[in-house]
Amino acid sequence: MKTLLDKNQLNITLQRLAHQLVENHLDLANTAIIGIQPRGIWLSDRIAAMVKQITGEKQINYGKLDITFHRDDVHKHDIHVPAPTSINFSIEGKDVVLVDDVLHTGRTIRAAMDALLDYGRPKNVELMVLIDRRFSRELPIQPDYVGRTVDTIITQKIKVYWAEKDAKEEVVLIDQQKQDNKA
């Protein structure tokens, strides 16, 4: 197990991502931040709060999107239990920023784009991720805002821990084969 980002580094990276988002969007009236359930929402909660702080806006368009029914691996794994979608505004003509914690094969993002379009036709869609697992893409999808780029192989796993749910805050790289040997 290797720590990629500790608590302090993670906070600095989140600040940068939030600033980059504000820099690119300036007027947030037409922007919507949408976190992908279940794991992306912890990142998007932070980003949305920081964006509010930076701009001084009290109200920004922030929603959460569940993609369970749009996945392309419904029968490949145990069935996924859906989490709630809450998008309480129209995304028609908006600049949408999709937010997820780890970008790996790109299939989740593909499903998210499909699910998003069921709610309307955004003007454009950008992607923000905390960790980009480069060179492991199975679909032509690239992020617009990246916290940290890492080179990984398929047997490795990235875990992101958040204070709100895990009582600790860090990003770690886990070598699954080694763990299996130990067990």
Binding site: F69, H70, V74, P82, A83, P84, D114, D118, G120
Partner: peptide, 26 residues
Amino acid sequence: ELIFQTADSFKDVLNRPIKKVPALRD
């Protein structure tokens, strides 16, 4: 309880403009 929890999500789907998801297209 699992069926109820899943049904909650489908109730959301049924209240959307597009009342359809591609989950079981195969």
